[in-house]
């Protein structure tokens, strides 16, 4: 009897073990699929042109043979440092603008009581369903009429055209409002008793408490700028004003002749690595944004 139970337990244990092994095998299988494009990008960027154009493809390169020179080759194809600088400038300006407008309006929605608040908030949320292409057309007209997009566009005008339309975001307002709402009312009343104004309360109490959410907003906004392609392509009139994504695509189009794949992939690495580093360092904050957006539905 005891023997039977013992045997049974052993059987269950083995079953659990096999099941777990299958799960790991499946995860590893799919993880390889995710990794392959990154690996292929890296290994191609490290090859010589002859190695790139060899069939069958070379799948493994000894790190000692890596052609780091491809990176300087890529930088010669297009002014990537300039593009990076442009992107950083645009990201900083757009993000500062977004964070300020978002904090102010999220505070109004979360803390203040005013006529039409719920109606206005509903109107905000409703526009989140509308595809951005509808806005792009008129925004293009608007920035052109203001004079930011013209054949003799200055750098300053290009920066304005790329940042001003993105200095606020309904999603971030919604996101920060939720964070502000979790701050207990008691703090507000205590601040009132202490004679603090709303303005002081917002910047000295609410903003410090909501710093993790504001950090998430900053990171997501900066990442969006780094990956922006369509709008900068539309509103920049000179190659020098472009952002990294545009620079990357335009420098390695095959309309320019034969594609130097090793340099193309080296340039792709230059664009991808900062994102991956940011992700690994700031995973916690990025995840917060994603899981929150998942709940909002």
């Amino acid at each position: 009897m005891e023997q039977a139970i013992y045997g049974n337990e052993k059987q269950i244990k083995r079953k659990i073990f096999i099941r777990l092994a299958i799960v790991y095998a499946l995860i590893i299988f799919f993880a390889i699929f995710i990794i392959i494009p990154f690996y292929w990008m890296l290994i191609t960027a490290m090859k010589t042109l002859t190695q790139v154009e060899s069939a069958p493809p070379i799948l493994w390169l000894n790190p000692a043979e890596w052609q780091w020179v491809n990176f300087s080759g890529a930088l010669e194809q297009a002014p990537f440092l300039r593009f990076t600088l442009n992107t950083v400038v645009v990201a900083i300006i757009a993000t500062i603008g977004t964070v300020i407008t978002t904090i102010l309006s999220a505070f109004a929605f979360a803390r203040l009581n005013f006529k039409g608040r719920d109606l206005l908030f509903m109107a905000f949320i409703a526009t989140m369903m509308i595809p951005g292409e509808i806005f792009v057309i008129t925004n293009y007209i608007t920035v052109s009429r203001i004079g930011w997009v013209s054949l003799d566009q200055s750098y300053f005008e290009a920066i304005l055209a790329m940042t001003v339309p993105f200095m606020t975001s309904i999603f971030f307002i919604f996101f920060l409002r939720q964070a502000f709402k979790t701050i207990p009312n008691e703090l507000y009343y205590a601040a009132k008793v202490d004679g603090k104004t709303d303005w002081q309360y917002l910047w000295r109490v609410m903003v410090p408490i909501a710093i993790p959410t504001i950090t998430t907003i900053t990171i997501l906004n900066a990442m969006n700028t780094w990956n922006a392609y369509i709008w900068p392509q539309l509103v920049t009139m000179q190659e020098d004003y472009r952002l990294v994504s545009n620079g990357l695509r335009n420098a390695f189009d095959d309309t320019a002749g034969r594609i130097m794949y090793h340099e193309q992939m080296a340039a792709s690495i230059i664009v991808t690595v900062p994102l991956i580093i940011a992700f690994l360092l700031l995973k916690k904050y990025i995840m917060r944004g994603v899981s929150r957006s998942g709940i909002k539905g």
């Binding site: 995710i34 990442m223 994504s245 990357l248 695509r249 193309q264 992939m265 991808t272 940011a278 992700f279």
Partner: peptide, 12 residues
């Protein structure tokens, strides 16, 4: 893949 640039990885 969530944090990668769609242009860069598209080229890959």
């Amino acid at each position: 893949p969530y944090v990668t640039n769609a242009i860069a990885i598209g080229m890959a």
